[in-house]
Design a protein around this nucleic acid. Structure first.
Lengths: 222, 222
DNA sequence: TTATTTCTTTAGATTTTTTTTAGATTTGGA
DNA sequence: TCCAAATCTAAAAAAAATCTAAAGAAATAA
């Protein structure tokens, strides 16, 4: 049975969707705000998320952004009609589909099924599990020699990128455009600094330096 | 700005997608059949291809097959709903994603962006892969008799240039203008020095001198 | 709001690479 | 043979890229 998470602050809408989906044979979890929504997703690993844009505590944009750092599960965004101009940004941000309120439950069902179907055939990023020598990444946590290490999300993204292709040399442009999703205009030492910080944290747990500087070209794992 | 090629025989659909993508800041090229589509791709080197399956002259399958002999650019296949059973074959053939007609343009946009993103992080196959006797170049790494050798980026560029045309004699001007992308004003021994350093590094790993000096003319491999 | 964390920018130190220099060596031709 | 031009290479100088601490800015949490 497929699991669906609903992140929605309006309790009536939430109940309505929940009942409807349970009737249609889904397992449903819900959370009333962004923060709890993210926790929920990490806990129950749903197959699809229905996300209200207007959330207390952590708004929809941020929720998608955070989710997308570690998973590709389909996210259907729900928003009031007046917010429609932001839909393109949402898709850009990483939402898979959107609907405006008020919506027809059957239309929602159709979209859920379409998106679930798609995510089966699409290559899954969900549930990252990487390992390289003494570094291990599971979901959003990094471990070095088994000890959890607190990387910031940018640091973790860079580390994951490197870990995904341990042979490849990544130019700063590669890294920047992969992580920030925007053009790399000029070198402002941002990447350098993050690399430096990553190294510092790694060094606390192990003697070896895992990141190699390839002069004039970029960085790679070593 | 990213370039997208559309290979689609229905002129209305083609125009619709073209307009939409131009509005979303892409540079768009299109071709009405498979043959022209392939020419187009060779000419404009798009970052992503949207390919209709049902094409006159050369059908979609063959187009993918041909494209895949020399490139890894993402290909999103578009097909009529009745053709859906072939989607797995398509993915197998080398397509990266597919959509059935009629489709939502925002969904297309989302998929385009997802696939472009993926291709940034994927290891590049377009990368250089050269071999000459005991010297091998893969990605940005040079190997001699299997051992990695640390060339600087300028040295590597020169070596790659020579390796690309092992027969050709390169004048210093040739080399300078290829690598530095500017006019070769006078001989300041820069090339000499780099050649010397390359030789030194090669000599550490093998007895033979791979670079031949052609007096009064330039250098070539030997 | 204020406090805290994270990210970006800055600036000077450091490291590596590139270019220049200079003297030695090699080459081809007179 | 000897000479002049071309090439070689070690070493010095210059330039460029990178590193990192620390400050400032921005985002997030309380």
């Amino acid at each position: 049975m497929k699991k669906i998470a609903i992140i929605e602050d309006d309790i009536d809408i939430c109940n309505m969707i929940t009942k409807f989906l349970i009737n249609h044979n889904y397992e449903v979890y819900s959370a009333p705000n962004g923060r709890e929504g993210i926790d929920l997703c990490q806990k129950f690993l749903p197959d699809l998320i229905i996300l209200d844009l207007m959330l207390p505590i952590l708004n929809g944009d941020s929720v998608i952004k955070q989710l997308r750092t570690y998973t590709d599960i389909p996210v259907i965004v729900v928003s009031a009609k007046t917010m429609v101009q932001s839909k393109i940004d949402l898709l850009r941000l990483g939402a898979d589909d959107y609907m405006t309120k008020p919506f027809n439950l059957f239309e929602l069902l159709a979209r859920i099924e379409a998106n679930l179907k798609r995510s089966v055939t699409a290559p899954m990023k969900a549930d990252i599990h990487l390992k390289y020598k003494d570094i291990k990444i599971e979901n959003c946590n990094a471990y070095i020699k088994g000890a959890i290490v607190q990387f910031t999300s940018t640091e973790l993204s860079i580390l994951i990128l490197l870990l995904q292709y341990p042979q490849k040399i990544f130019s700063k442009q590669n890294i920047y455009e992969s992580i920030w999703q925007e053009e790399y205009a000029y070198d402002n030492d941002t990447i350098n600094t993050h690399i430096s910080n990553i190294r510092k944290k790694i060094k606390k747990h192990t003697d070896t330096d895992y990141i190699e500087t390839v002069w004039g070209i970029g960085y790679k794992l070593k």
